[in-house]
Design a protein around this nucleic acid. Sequence first.
RNA 1: GUCCCCAUCGUCUAGCCUGGCCUAGGACAUUGCCCUUUCAAGGCAGUAACACGGGUUCAAAUCCCGUUGGGGACACCA
Length: 471
Amino acid sequence: MSQVRVRFAPSPTGLLHIGGVRTALFNWLFARQQNGVFVLRIEDTDQSRSTEESIQAIIEGMKWVGLDWDEGPFRQTERMDLYRSHAMQLLAKGQAYWCACKAEELDARRKEAEAKGLSPKYDGRCRDRGITNPTGDAALRFKAPQEGETVVDDLIKGRIVFDNTVQDDLIILRSNGYPTYNFSVVIDDALMNITHVVRGDDHLTNTPRQIPIFQALGFSVPQFGHLPMILGSDKTRLSKRHGATSIMAYKEMGYLPEAMVNYLVRLGWSHGDQELFTRQELIEKFSWKNVQTSPAVFNPEKLLWINAEYIKVSPPAQIAQALRPLLEAAGCTEETRAISTGQLAQLVVLVKERAKTLMEMVDWVRPYLGQVVTFDEEAAKKFLTPAIAPTLGKLLACFEAFPAFSKEQWEEAFKQLVKEEGMKMGQLAQPVRVALTGRTASPGLFEVMEALGRDRTLFRLGQGIERACRA
RNA sequence: GUCCCCAUCGUCUAGCCUGGCCUAGGACAUUGCCCUUUCAAGGCAGUAACACGGGUUCAAAUCCCGUUGGGGACACCA
């Protein structure tokens, strides 16, 4: 069998959305598993809607999720001669014809047919007119088969039969000379030797339109596979109404690319009960057989859970690196630049179990940057009271007596003091927590002290006592 | 309207092809408990589904037909 060649062919009419990423991902996994080739092709034949920014957004998104392509990015607008010459071939063979109907006329006729409850398909009035010297605004139509059936043996859905009598004579070359989608995909998929065309379910009904074009041109027909759609919580097709759909929006919200990939692949594909996969496992275990046939609702809560799982197990230094720009963007520019990645990684270890996104992590890490603590007013008011000040003072004196920080020693001393004062652990722990972090919630107290170091711990404790006395 | 696809807990899904092991398993979310210096994390337990109706069969979530419901496509968009 020849080498597997698959492609991802987005149209650059907006940002790269998660549905597109999932389609790309399935293609990519299959290519990598089969030692095949993954092609990136930009379908920009609609000059009125395609933009350069969108092309950049697609490339940026693909890179972020780590879906590297082997060939391309090809742009259809750079391949116009190919489409035109093949269209002319069809014309010469009598499998295409010029159509002089005006777009507005066609529109009107379609509406009329619909109003009468008839099929809105082209009535074929130019089919046998034999126009040989078309005026500048004629379009070229493909002579679609009008009888028999077209069978698609779908990789995911199995055998699907379409009745050719409902097929339309599609326009393949617009009056402006640009090819239409259904024609340019066929030419490109054929010329690029694509072996498996895997795309969204919304293309399923395009398949019986495209197969006859492959055949008319004498190309071998690739295998097709149609992925179920991603739906929003209301079970309609996922769109902006449902929240963020652009892949880069998830980056900005603090999601990890590996988490996105893991979530997206599980949306429509499964391997028994397994939820978490390394990329290597995905490549090994992926199979069309286990791709779901029905659409899936996008569930942000599960994505959040997966992201949290990835934050917990990813190398801390890697998280630290990704965190840096977000920290700076959050206004901690100086503190962030002052800290080494190694030190930042230690903070990541400190808080990684409580942050589900990098954005949340920014907030968790903040109290450990800089010398001074920023008090949460409510927390300070509640726990840093004059009543507790003397005990905090004793604790400070006790800690100061230790020349160096030692988690075990300091914890021992802390517990000793709690006992002497006849308090409960929490009665002293909370005020100390507020003194050290400014907040009522934090990692374990002694981990916090370790992260802060002896000097800052003592400094902040002193700060807390001052605040308590003032209150 | 026509054509096509789809249908298991709220959600993602296992099981369906090759009927019995399914009084339907896992995960997210949710509820309760445990752990505990706070917040998490973790552990344990619970609530919760085969859309409906007919067949076929000794036996159906699994096979067949229909109904209903959802989605998609019917452009000189992709």
